[in-house]
Every structure is written in structure tokens, then in C-alpha cells.
């Protein structure tokens, strides 16, 4: 018999995870679809469930020195309107699902669900965001790109819970997030690109590129990015085809019911090219 528990607080939740085989439910907007049953019948979960969306300790947005910390159970809609949340994260959330979903879906849930098409993931990879994993024994920090190992697969111990997300503060002169869905709103991503660059005195001081939905996990390659550091803006622009070539082997999308391999591949490259070609000497104060 599968157990269902609503813990009073985080400690109780962690105890449940420590002593039994439980799965954490956050907002439920993915799990409820994945485990969907017939109308008017209870959902069929294979594991014990611990419901944590309501835990106040896991909600909220806090600005710290050089970073913002977000409780794993904070609804996405709250992030969307919060000035301390990095603009790229807000942009990705703005493109996600619908208001009704954003009111309950959480950032922790989007990460833990680890879908190759997860909308916040390219941005979180790009920003070197980390997750706090907590258990009765204590907590540890892990980069989100190290936490996610494959579609719906995380490097997390059964007794651990994703409790917090930290996003380092970064300055870019240019940034973009583009999501390509089947329609203008409320669609699952066919391909997405998060990209950012800091151009200082005509030179690339930072370049970051992350693709979603084109491989089992988000594609980000710091070596490729680093190769352009110190290059002048015009070198980067002239070298855009070389840059694209470097990404060709990393972009390995699939054919599915939403789109095709060839399309995803070509569009991913188009988006990156467009971003590079749009780069210009910053004229005003860099944004965040």
C-alpha cells in the first residue's frame, strides 16, 4: 500500500525520506500528468508520496551578496514578478506553460523533473545555478548541470530533497532566451536557446551558450565558450560559422510527435547565429 503524507515541516519531510522510500511532490504539474489515471479515480503512484508544496521553509526569494536564493517550492509566478530574480530566469518562466500552471509549478519541480525540454534549465545551466540538497544528515550544494544526469534522472540520494536554488549574480551586456514551441503560448519546447555575452571594450569577456531540447540534457560546453574569450567582437562575428560548426556535433535532437531532428538542429544553429550577429558594442550601462 502506497503511503501519502503531508508533513508539517521540512524536518518531518526529511525524516520520511530518511526512513522510507518516498517521492517528493512539489506543485505536481508534471507528476500529475505523468501518473495520470482515469477521471475520478485516485492517481496511481508507484512510490510513497510526500507532498511538500506548502512548506513555508521552502518558499521565498532572498537576495544575498552576489546571488539570489530561491526556495525550491516557490511558485514560478512569484519569480516572474520578482525584481531580484535574474531577467533571463524571468524570461524563461514567462515563456512557460500558462498562468494556471505557473501559479502552482515550482522551480524545484522543473529542475527535479529533469525533462530535456524543461524551460528553465538552459538558463539555470547558463547562470551556473546550483541546488541545495538537504537530508537529515545535512546539506550539500551541487551545480544544476552536475545534478541532472539524463532525462528524468538526477544525482540525488533517496533521503535527500532539493530545497533551494542559488543563482549567482552576473553581468552581461547581451543576453537572450528564445523558446520555440508549436504556438505562441502554452507549448512544450521544440528547441530553446539561452545565450549571454559580456562585451567589454570591444572584446568578449564572457560568452555563455546553452541549448534545450536538442540532447538528453541541456547542451552547454564551457571549453567551447572559453575559446572565444578575449576575441574581439568582430573576430567573433567573422568566426560565427566556425562557432556554429563546433556546436554541430553537440546538437543531437530526436524526432518525436512535436518536431523533427533536422528542424531542431537547424533552428538551434539559426538561433545561435542570430544571437552572435546581434551582438554590438554596448552603449549604455550593462544590464543584468
Amino acid at each position: 500500500m502506497v503511503e501519502h503524507r503531508i508533513p508539517e515541516n521540512l524536518n518531518e519531510a526529511l525524516k520520511l525520506l530518511y526512513h522510507g522510500d518516498y517521492q517528493v511532490m512539489a506543485g505536481g504539474t508534471d507528476l500529475m500528468v505523468q501518473r495520470r489515471s482515469l477521471s475520478d479515480t485516485p492517481l496511481d503512484f508507484p512510490k510513497n508520496m510526500v507532498y511538500c508544496a506548502h512548506l513555508q521553509e521552502l518558499r521565498g526569494i532572498r537576495k544575498e551578496a552576489h546571488r539570489v536564493e530561491i526556495g525550491a517550492m516557490t511558485p514560478l509566478e512569484d519569480l516572474l514578478c520578482h525584481p531580484d530574480v535574474p531577467s533571463l530566469v524571468r524570461r524563461a518562466i514567462g515563456e512557460m506553460a500558462s498562468p494556471a500552471i505557473r501559479h502552482v509549478a515550482t522551480l524545484g519541480g522543473n529542475i527535479a523533473n529533469a525533462s530535456p525540454a524543461g524551460d528553465t534549465l538552459p538558463v539555470l545551466y547558463l547562470l551556473d545555478a546550483w541546488a541545495e540538497l538537504r537530508s537529515l544528515a545535512g546539506s550539500r550544494m551541487i551545480l544544476i548541470r552536475d545534478l541532472i544526469t539524463g532525462p528524468r534522472a538526477l544525482k540525488i540520494h533517496p533521503e535527500e530533497m532539493l530545497t533551494k536554488i542559488g543563482i549567482p549574480e552576473m553581468h552581461f551586456s547581451h543576453e537572450t532566451f528564445v523558446k520555440v514551441g508549436g504556438r505562441q503560448a502554452d507549448a512544450i519546447s521544440k528547441v530553446s536557446l539561452a545565450a549571454a555575452a559580456d562585451i567589454v571594450e570591444g572584446k568578449v569577456s564572457d560568452l555563455r551558450i546553452a541549448f534545450g531540447a536538442v540532447a538528453p540534457t541541456v547542451v552547454r560546453d564551457e571549453t567551447l565558450e572559453g575559446a572565444w574569450e578575449g576575441a574581439t567582437l568582430s573576430e567573433l562575428k567573422v568566426g560565427v560559422w566556425r562557432l556554429l560548426d563546433m556546436y554541430v556535433p553537440l546538437i543531437r535532437p530526436i524526432d518525436d510527435q512535436r518536431s523533427g531532428k533536422h528542424y531542431r538542429h537547424q533552428v538551434a544553429l539559426n538561433l545561435l547565429r542570430d544571437f552572435i550577429e546581434s551582438l554590438s558594442e554596448p552603449t549604455s550601462e550593462p544590464g543584468r
Partner: peptide, 23 residues
């Protein structure tokens, strides 16, 4: 969205809401 209800004044899809999360 046909199943929508308001929870704390905000629209939510009741088909994705486990009863547990309504406490």
C-alpha cells in the same frame, strides 16, 4: 483550463491539483 478554479485568488487547473496540496 476547463477545470480551472481559484486558489487564493489565482487560477489553477484542478485536474493537476492533488487533494494533498489543497490543505
Amino acid at each position: 483550463g476547463a477545470c480551472a478554479v481559484l486558489i487564493d485568488h489565482r487560477i489553477v487547473n484542478s485536474c493537476l491539483m492533488p487533494l494533498a496540496n489543497c490543505e
